[in-house]
Computed example of a mutant assay.
Amino acid sequence: MKRGLQTGTSEAPGAFASFIRFVIFGGGVGLASSSAVALLSGFLPFALANALITVVSTILATELHARFTFASGRRRAKRGLLHCGLRHHLQSAGTAAAAFAVTTLAMLVLYAFESAPSLVVEQTVYLSASALAGIGRFLALRLYVFATKGRRPAPVTLDLHRSQPVREQLTTAS
């Protein structure tokens, strides 16, 4: 059976493939969103246009990530257009809000230390914070929001009741 996006497969892509897809789909939605906000703000106040596009783009990105980025094995149920449920959309929105908080905090810290940073410094701080937040968001989505039963990390357990004492293991192995 091939891995990937075929109908009926429940195998999720590997971490590297998922990360590349995350960057492509998330970045694509981000670019489209920035254009949409610019267009819509000609008809609506910017804050309202930004809020509307943020909601729509978060829903779109969540659907794309569920279907293609993480290919979590969930198939369209009786939800119509939506692929994943409200819980996944809310959790994804939570990760987006956390990423927003990280980038905002980074910029506030920058302005606390330097009131008029150069454009290069400002963009370096913002893009670095965005990259860190994006990696954190990817991990949260992959390991928690869209994790399948087979891909959830196994709990760490310590076997304190060994079948043989260490001395016996050494003598039987020799």
Rank of each mutant, 00 (worst) to 15 (best):
M1C: 06
K2H: 08
G4W: 13
L5S: 08
T7D: 14
G8I: 01
G8R: 04
S10R: 09
G14I: 15
A15H: 05
F16D: 05
A17H: 03
S18Q: 14
F22K: 03
F22E: 03
V23R: 03
I24S: 08
F25P: 05
F25N: 03
G27R: 07
G28L: 11
G28K: 09
G30H: 03
A32D: 02
S34W: 08
S34H: 08
A38V: 06
A38W: 06
L40C: 04
F43G: 04
L44G: 01
L44N: 03
A47R: 02
T54L: 09
T54I: 12
S57I: 01
L60K: 00
L60S: 10
A61K: 00
E63Y: 05
H65G: 13
A66Y: 07
R67F: 11
F68A: 08
F70K: 01
A71R: 06
G73V: 11
R74Y: 07
R74H: 14
R79G: 14
H83I: 15
H89Y: 12
L90V: 15
G94A: 08
T95K: 01
V102P: 04
V102N: 00
M107Y: 01
M107S: 08
V109D: 00
L110Y: 01
L110N: 02
A112P: 00
A112F: 05
A112M: 07
F113K: 00
F113H: 01
S115H: 05
Q123L: 15
T124R: 06
L127R: 08
A129D: 04
A129V: 13
A131E: 06
L132S: 10
L139W: 09
L139H: 05
R142E: 15
L143I: 06
F146Y: 10
G150D: 14
R151S: 15
R152N: 10
R152L: 15
R152Y: 08
A154R: 00
V156C: 02
L158M: 06
D159S: 09
Q164G: 06
V166S: 02
V166W: 00
T171S: 13
S174Y: 15
